[in-house]
Each structure stands twice: as structure tokens, then as C-alpha cells.
Amino acid sequence: MASKLKLFWMLPISCLLLSNCLHTRGNADPQVPCYFIFGDSLSDNGNNNNLKTLAKVNYRPYGIDFPEGPAGRFSNGRNMQDVIVELLGFQKYIPPFARANGRSILKGVNYASGSAGIRDESGAQLGARIPLNKQLKNHKIIISRITQILRNDTSTRKLLNQCIYSVQIGSNDYINNYFVPEVYNTSRQYSPEQYAAVLVEQYSQQIKVLYGHGARKFALYGLGLIGCIPFVISAHGTNGSLCVEKLNNAATLFNARLMPLVKELNTNLTDAKFTYVNPSPSPQDALSFVTNSTCCKVGGGGGELCVRNSDPCSDRSRYVFWDGVHPTDAWNELVAQSAYRTNSTNEAHPFNIQTLAKLK
């Protein structure tokens, strides 16, 4: 991979580094009444803060460009879902399940957990986490609370039918499972093709659980180029390639299973809408992003996170990677804008997030 990528728009630096973009928006209603977030560290906004785990980031320099400081996001600022929440017109970010209370839950809840996976055991070597199965159970708790607030099952179901459900998970099932043979035996049980099939089958059942709880609008995210992550390159080596091809190939196999699943779900569950989102903008669409270096000094967590209280790079708007695994606010802005607005079927199919929000 080249050391720089090309961006097709200049990032709004005033929102990126100086202030919370939500504070500059009007008081119009959001495009959907609520937004529920499931996933891993790419979406976690504080659920891991009080867990016994290496996968938590409630310390500086995390959050250095976020108004609340190190709130638990694996970034210098916003994560991708924060930006999508802004684009959808919400006045506040979606609260993490760990702190969600009162009527705020009517706008949605973020259940994502750093190091979590589709499989319950993924990420176990890093400590406690909230796998997708547990996130689904936490969602049932929230549904019960919503029903208590609205005092009516029908009103609850009507509300949930209108929400968007964002699910971005699967990277840890590879980075912190399949490709850690000294801890997990999945690579001895399954070929990469078999593992992708097993993962997506389990994922399919988990998505149908959400559907059974009233979810009708789904954004399902594919895996990015996990073989180009700095920590992965450091851990596995590239044998002269730019990235770790075996991990990128595995991600491609997963995505190749997920895309037809989305089509199948749209065909069989006709009262629901599903879309597949590719979280990897094309290199030719960018301007001056550094891809071969991290913005902070890494060595924290399991070796991939920022060192506590270290000084990060000064020009954080130019870097793809904040730490050894996770993107900067700037890159999250780019990817979220793409997911929300793109007309490219390579980036979102059959529709983007903006269109998903409008569908009845």
C-alpha cells in the first residue's frame, strides 16, 4: 500500500478538531427516531471502560480531539458511527449501554464492545468483552425499559420498526481468533472458506434474532482490509507484500458470504430492509492520508493501543491509523460520509444509509 491515499473532499477541520459537530446543528428531528449500534472497538463508545480487559481506552491520548475527552472511543475523536449519527441529524451521540438510562434510550443505544466478535470466544485473550450474543441480550433489556416508558407493547414495536440497526463486527473473529493459533483452534478446525461460512451462518441467525425483536432497517458492514492494519503487519509480517495477504483474503471470503446474505434477507423478510456497507473507500478517492504509520506511540493494551499519556502526532487529520488498529477521526469521517451518501454499489448495496433512513 502506498504511504498516502487520495481524498476526494477536504475534511471540515472545525468539526474535526475544534468542536462537537452536533452542537452546531439545528433542532430538526433526526431522519429516523432511533439508532441502535452493535459491534466491536470500531463502534465502542465506552462499554468496555469498567471491564477487566486490555481492550479499553478511557485514558489519554484517546479522545484528545473529542469534547468529552477519553470517553471510551478507540480514536482521537469520533468513531464512524458517531459521524453517521451526526449525518442523520441526532442532537446527541447515542449513549453506550453501560450508561444508558431514562428516556435517552428512546433515541437508541450503543452496545458495541472492544475485542468482541460474532463468536463468543473471540478476543478472550484480551480479557472481558461483550460478544454479539450478549449484545443481543442487552438489547432485550433495553426493549423492556422502552416498553415501561411507552407503557405499550404496540408503541414499542412501532418505534423499533422505524430505527436503524447498525451492525459492524467480525474483525476480531479473525484478528483475535482464527489467526491466533496459539490460543484458538479454529484455524485447525476450518479452512478459511469453511470458517467464513460458519461465521456468516452464525451471524445470519443473530441478525434474525434482532428482526424477531422488531428491527426492520439494517446496515450490515463488511470487513475492511484487515491485513493492512499496522498491528497485524507487525504481528504477522508481509513476506515482501504491502499487507498481510492471508488476512485480506480471509476478509474477502467473509464479505463474499455476507453480500448474498443481505440479498437473501431482503428476499425472504420482505417487511424489512437490509443493506451491505463496505467500510473501505477506494484509494483513488482520497487526498494526502498517511497509511503506513500510526499517529500515537503504540504499546498499550495487547501491544496495539496507544501508550498511556503519550504525545500523539500533531497533524491528526492526515492519518488513517490513530493506533495500531483503529482509525483516526479524520478517516472515520471519510468512511462515514461514504456510507451515508455514496452512489457506488461497491460501497453500499442496495442503498446507502441516507436512503435506508427514508425507506418505510
Rank of each mutant, 00 (worst) to 15 (best):
L199P: 01
N177C: 10
G302P: 04
A124R: 02
R25M: 14
A339D: 01
L199W: 03
G72V: 06
S317R: 05
K358F: 09
Y93I: 10
Y35N: 04
K158Q: 13
R60Q: 11
R145T: 06
G300Q: 01
L220P: 02
A2W: 07
V298I: 15
T294V: 03
F8L: 09
I143L: 15
Y211G: 05
K52Y: 11
L269K: 06
A128H: 10
R78D: 12
T275K: 06
E86G: 11
R145P: 02
T294A: 08
K137R: 15
S282F: 15
Y190W: 14
G89Y: 10
N133I: 10
P181T: 05
C313P: 13
V32N: 01
V167L: 13
S241D: 15
F90V: 08
N152A: 04
S344H: 05
A28Q: 14
C15Q: 14
A2Y: 09
S75R: 08
W322C: 03
R257S: 11
L269R: 03
G303H: 06
G222Q: 00
A250P: 06
S241C: 09
L269S: 05
R157C: 05
D65W: 05
R25Q: 15
L356K: 04
L150T: 08
Q91R: 15
T294D: 01
N177D: 12
F351H: 02
A197H: 04
F179H: 09
H23G: 12
N79V: 14
K273F: 10
G46V: 07
I142H: 09
E86H: 13
E264C: 05
T147L: 01
M1S: 08
N133K: 12
P61G: 13
L5A: 13
K217D: 05
Y184K: 11
N20C: 15
H139N: 12
D120G: 03
S338N: 11
R129Y: 01
C243S: 13
A98W: 00
K92C: 12
Q194K: 10
S293Q: 14
T342M: 05
L242V: 07
G108M: 06
Y165N: 10
A272R: 00
S204M: 12
K52W: 08
D44K: 00
G69I: 08
E347Q: 13
S282K: 14
D44M: 02
N278R: 11
A330E: 03
V198G: 01
V298Q: 04
D271S: 05
P95F: 14
L17R: 03
P30Q: 08
Y174F: 15
I105W: 07
V244G: 02
